[in-house]
Write a protein that binds this DNA or RNA. Sequence first.
RNA 1: GGUUCAGUAGCUCAGCUGGAUAGAGCAACGGCCUUCUAAGCCGUAGGUCGCAGGUUCGAAUCCUGCCUGAAUCACCA
Length: 599
Amino acid sequence: MLSDCIRMEKTIENNVIRALKVLYGSEADTSNIQVQPTRKEFEGDITLVVFPLLKYSGKSPEDTANDLGNYLLKSTPGISTFYVVKGFLNLQVSNSAWLGEFIKLWTAGETNDLYKKGQTILVEYSSPNTNKPLHLGHIRNNLLGFSLSRILTECGHRVFKTNIVNDRGIHICKSMLAWKLFGQGKTPADTGMKGDHFVGQFYVEFETAYKKEINELIQKGMTAEEAAESSELMAGARDLLRKWEAGDRETVGLWMKMNSWVYEGFNITYEALGVDFDKIYYESETYMLGREIVEAGLQKGIFYRKEDGSVWVNLSADSLDEKLLLRADGTAVYMTQDLGTAVERYNDYKFDHQYYVVGNEQNYHFQVLKLILKKLGYEWAEGIHHFSYGMVNLPEGKMKSREGKVVDADDLIDNMIHTAREMAEELGKLHDYGDEEKEAIYRKIGLAALKYFILKVDPRKNMMFNPRESIDFNGNTGPFIQYTYARIKSVLRLAQDKGYSVIEISTDLVLNEKESDLVKLLRKYESVVKEAAQSLNPSVIANYAYELAREYNQFYHDHTILGEHDPGLRNFRIALSEYTGKIINKSMCLLGIEMPERM
RNA sequence: GGUUCAGUAGCUCAGCUGGAUAGAGCAACGGCCUUCUAAGCCGUAGGUCGCAGGUUCGAAUCCUGCCUGAAUCACCA
């Protein structure tokens, strides 16, 4: 399918090389052949840039373009005429050729051979802490991870989505202590709160009480360090951590109880976002892994031990620093654990690639992780990649969860759905639907607005979110694309009512400009998906879907579909609409965005 | 200070491995619904692509320097 679609450009490239040989006796380098779509303001469809070819022709740009144009006109089927503008050769593709391109797409069906050989790929994303609810930063992570998984799947790979939950450590102990001190035995069910919010509240309570305690100690004349050391609250939290590690029954019981509340809450958020996982790893189960690996590296002399007993690796040869791998007391650090889980995952899946969807604040960590794995001799380390994405900032600056300056995920989702509901009710197009059906549509629209807003920006860049200016539903937005889809569906329903069914498409039609523009865009789909996969960038697909929707709306506005009297042309337009709807749906599906049949 | 990333319209963002007169949306202003969904379409206005050099037929894009911002350089995760 792909090869069919790019055949025309490929043929042109080959024929240019042949032309240069025939006309000028030169062996041209393919890298000098630049074939691209002609800009809207010029006549033609496909442009050959002739500047790089002047060294072969030894002629002026115009003469060279004319020579090549004449050659291509004779040698390349589908080219009807050409225009020379300065150093650009603009080739016009004939009407019937565009129609032919569309018929190829139309009849190709669901074949998918973007990549011939699928690989096994792990995508790790989400990876929350269990001491607080998810916020907008997590939403970006989840959406990117989920979308990347779908894109890679679309490319024919076997993709496994994983999540490593940070369910242990001092932060959970803080919530636990606060609950013991202030919780009065209450549960989320008692308060009607979502479990993750319930637990998060105690985390915040701990931080507030702790800050107060420190301030009081400082008032009494202590330095900040002294105060931190003599804090009873912090000592209590540390004590819980020790008890937890020692397997103290009561502590572990409380830990399990509170975590289970959090998971209930997380699951609701994950479901609302429409993301899921094939396998969830828990840090409480994996944090010990990695020690043996460090020991082995020590034996091989890749790592070294300092006098105090701590283990380090020296990466200065790779222009990085020394890095700690094991504390003097033998306990694991973040890196130890990540080394362990990487090896464990390789053993579990024998992956060709593993993508870690983690914020760019950890660029250094993943650089080191990969390097150490390579030093240890794991060849598969070449296949691990950090899918690094930028932060979501507020107008005030960074989100700070400790200070409560965050945009809560659940609140945001609810707000989006609420806005969708208000707008839809105002427009009143869904009167004949039942409440449940309506709600399902509001949900789709609200989530589309949110997801598209986040996924349309380049993942590598930091992005801004202003809570006071709510996310748009008009213009370059998810709902706009959904609207276009719903419009198409509406046309198709009416076509069916009228008994118009398209069995085959006439090869004898004259396309208007909007129609051929649409065909041009439609045949780009697979190369867009491929580019998104290669550059790890769902925004490429988001922008494509928008462009396609905009193009379709122009076509829809300018030309009647069902009102067309010529049955051949009418059928073509119905088919064009249907296929556009299909591509819009597929593109948005790769972003994890659902399309409504009506809105 | 070292490393990495970013700086494009008032705001939020596109701009592919260098290509023609730098594009969208929002906000502003003006048009288009007795006709397939107006969450739409069309138009007007809005730019020293951070600054300065360099590479070449050609630079928002590549190189160097500088300015600004972010992240990171933890026995935190």
